[in-house]
Design a protein around this nucleic acid. Sequence first.
RNA 1: CGGGGCGUAGCGCAGCUUGGUAGCGCGUCUGAUUUGGGAUCAGAAGGUCGCAGGUUCAAAUCCUGUCGCCCCGACCA
Length: 571
Amino acid sequence: MRASALLFPTLREDPAEAETVSHRLLYRAGMIRKTAGGIYTYLPLGLRVLHKVMQIVREEMDRAGSQEVGLPIIQPSELWMQSGRWAVYGDEMFRLKDRHDRDFCLGPTHEEVITDLVSHEVHSYRELPLLLYQIQNKYRDEIRPRFGLMRAREFIMKDLYSFDVDEAGLEVSYQKMYEAYCRVFDRMGLDYRVVQADVGAIGGAASHEFIVLASTGESKVVFCDGCSYAANVEKSECLPEPRGERAEPAPLEKVHTPGRRTIAEVSEFLGLPAWQTAKTLVYVADGKPLAVMVRGDRELNEIKLKNFLGANELFMADEAWTRELTGAGFGSLGPVGLQLPLYADLEVELMANLAAGANQDDYHYVNLNPGRDFTPAAYVDLREAEAGDLCPSCREGRLAETRGIETGHIFKLGTKYSQAMGATFMDETGQERLMVMGCYGIGVSRTMAAAVEQNNDENGIIWPMAIAPYQVMVVPVNVNNAEQREAAESIYARLQAAGVEVLLDDRDERAGVKFKDADLIGIPLRITIGPKSLAAGKVEVKRRREAEARQVELERVVDVVRELIAADLTP
RNA sequence: CGGGGCGUAGCGCAGCUUGGUAGCGCGUCUGAUUUGGGAUCAGAAGGUCGCAGGUUCAAAUCCUGUCGCCCCGACCA
């Protein structure tokens, strides 16, 4: 491709609307443009990256023994009514009507459609296991689309569904996918972690997330320094460990704490460390209020609470409602005299002489002791894991914390959808049985953004070789110089002939402009053809990631480039 | 939906407080001189000031409504 003919409108300045690195750089590099909130247009360079990601995904899904299908974007409401999700899915689903006033939606996911298909077309254990996938646009009317491609309303996803005769079969399919996903992210050259995840609304038995590490990521994960344990903080189990010496219970005391609301303010005022305080929070689960208590220096994990309660809807009560229920506002809540069901984190049981609110504005109790002064309905694992925690798996190592972007998620679904959609088969004994399903997603467009989020510098994107829009950019310093132009054309032709994806910057621009653009769009290799080296029969070959270029004889250029590409394409 | 911010030329912004000829930088077009890290000079094009009402002799500016966008929170690939 010639840069003179390529549509890649690079920008010198950051677009005002873009906050995150990937959004900014993809925009500036002329790879994406916004068409509406959370809806993007892919320009030629951006689309090439997407295609590369898709191709790697496709190859690995095929290699794992699955088959590609094309499912409809527009889906009839009947299927969703059958699974019960038409009512449950809520505002996140784009809904539309046809001219006959029939209800449809834009597919946010495809469990219904695929299970319906399989229920009609597959009837025997002899046809199982079956793994089907597609790569397609998904539509979710996000409450708040943001971060460019990271959380869009229209996005590209690879979704794969497995159908097995039993749990053991599902286990095999799940394992296959786990490995296929690792190969996908390995091949793309991304630094990622596989972590245990919460199953969320999709439901099912087990789940892993594939997290591309990036400090700007939305997901927080913990991993053990001693064993292979890794989990999303939403999921990670917390083992209770006592902190400090277990003191003898002291007499309960009520203290005036004027204006002290936060844990930091209260602990400073009382002269106690935060871990000797506790915070009490009032929540509403499916309309019923309740209170939860965690150590002052910990964070409540709402997902754990939601799972424990088996609640569909959970939110924190606002201050007015909280006051109505407890008699005090935020900052003075505590377990004593509470007229609500109270659930305390496991750690609370190990605490002694702790401080907490008195359910009276500006008053706290000190020397509270669980069992003596208050008794929760239950002690439950409710807090969010954090760095330094004891590993729940090996019980020896300590957890470290990192952030990342969830680019893949695999679930064991079980029979939830096969039951609802009537996906059954005849087994060897003539018995009709439900298929056991799994579902497996990769956010293709999000992966593109995650790759940028992880690979960039002050000059722009640094694409991993495997997903770069072009592998090499050939830059003659001055196209008006015949010698340089001819050398560039010759190298361009030879590289193309050798099957290298090459972009020739034949624009009549100053060298600086071309270098800036090459860096911004992140082409991994650059061949610079300038007067100095050309006089010696050489050109410069520079890796985007490195500062220094190497001098290469003209006739060796193709070989050197191929070697560099091969070295950067991890198996 | 709650909180915060913003809509003025393709992009980034000023002007609005105190109403009175719509401005700057980048980009674009023409010409010249340039050509190894976003050139210089000369000239030019380009804007219903998001939209709709209202106040006023007069509105980008004041008022009301509305639409859209961005950021923070509850959702998720």
